[in-house]
């Protein structure tokens, strides 16, 4: 490979592009990459229904304590497929790279893509690379599009399926991804105590669905906007009320500290490896047992209940008082100055 930085010519479609794709991208991805370098990928599917999702990733910083943008880009799309009940199979990988980006960093990111894809059991079937002038992007942006298949008998999971009496389950510590990245960005001192929770959770979802079947009504991954946003979307879509117990929410002590310092509410902070699962009463204990059996979801807790209502979300504190959990409009900015 010529040079140690990405140049505009690496995205021009000529010899350097070919060198980058074959010598760096395909080589680093290894067996995870099954593309044929054609204009489109042709892939087999085994069932009559597929799930498709796409997401773009702008992660700052690109590298963090226990991951990087490559891990987030694969895990995020895999989880989006998994929570619909689909089995993730194929991903595309598109990269927008700023001129001057170190090729060694690109290799590091691609290595994360490979390792995370391998852990999730998905293949990279197609890709694209664009290089933009210095200053027109901040290092590197990724986009992944994912395809998953629905196996026969997969329950129909969606936001409109919540029923009064259902229980709300959260599978991990809230807000860790946000706190880790914010701490790295601003040097807040929490970055070694609170790591990102980023992880592909498709195997976890598959096991829960296998154990509980139609007893699971909905699964959502808790990402931007946090649990507060997910709960509001679910309550609104199903026209039910949700009430969560503040004391039951799994939150690390350090994350609570950081949120208070920043003047933000943990319930709106992002994760990249936490699910919100809604299951009927009869399935809750099985679902919790299965979830706690996976290391990524070992801190699973039952946090709330669904009741008849008009789409409202409330939080009950330790004294039994309830207050509304409103939908967050816009970003919840940290108060730093």
């Amino acid at each position: 490979m010529t040079g140690d930085k990405i140049t505009l010519d690496h995205g021009a479609g000529g010899g350097l592009s070919h060198e980058l794709i074959t010598g760096v991208v395909a080589t680093t991805l290894g067996a995870v990459y099954v593309g044929q370098m054609e204009d489109s990928a042709t892939v087999p599917v085994t069932t009559g229904r597929i799930a498709v999702t796409t997401d773009s990733f702008v992660v700052d910083p690109v590298f963090f304590g226990n991951g990087d943008i490559g891990k987030v880009a694969v895990a995020g799309t895999v989880n989006d497929l998994a929570v619909s009940g689909a089995r993730p199979m194929y991903l595309t990988l598109a990269m927008i790279i700023e001129e001057g980006f170190p090729i060694a960093d690109l290799v590091r990111i691609l290595t994360s893509v490979r390792d995370t894809a391998r852990a999730a059991g998905v293949s990279i079937v197609a890709g694209d690379t664009k290089v933009v002038h210095r200053g027109q992007a901040d290092g590197i942006y990724l986009n992944t599009t994912g395809v998953g298949v629905f196996e026969p008998g997969t329950p129909d999971l969606n936001s409109r399926s919540l029923k009064p009496g259902d229980r709300v389950i959260v599978t991990g510590h809230l807000g860790d991804h946000s706190v880790h990245l914010l701490s790295l960005r601003e040097g807040l001192g929490f970055e070694k105590r609170v790591l990102s929770d980023c992880a592909p959770l498709n195997h976890v979802v598959a096991d829960v669905l296998a154990a509980c079947g139609n007893g699971v009504h909905c699964v959502r991954d808790v990402t931007r906007g946090g649990l507060g946003t997910v709960l509001n979307e679910l309550a609104s879509a199903s026209t039910v009320d949700l009430c969560v117990d503040a004391e039951a929410l799994p939150v690390r002590h350090e994350t609570k500290m950081a949120a208070e310092m920043l003047g933000v509410d943990v319930i709106y902070l992002a994760n990249e490896g936490v699910l919100c699962v809604v299951a009927d009463e009869a399935s809750v204990s099985t679902a919790v047992e299965v979830l706690r059996g996976h290391p990524e979801t070992a801190h699973t807790a039952v946090v709330g209940t669904v009741s008849a209502g008009g789409g409202h979300v409330r939080m009950r504190d330790a004294n039994g008082r309830t207050s509304p959990v409103d939908l967050l409009y816009g970003a919840q900015l940290p108060r730093l100055c």
Partner: peptide, 9 residues
């Protein structure tokens, strides 16, 4: 505040 927290950790 952040230096105090970091020192504590």
């Amino acid at each position: 505040q952040t230096t105090a927290a970091d020192a504590y950790f």
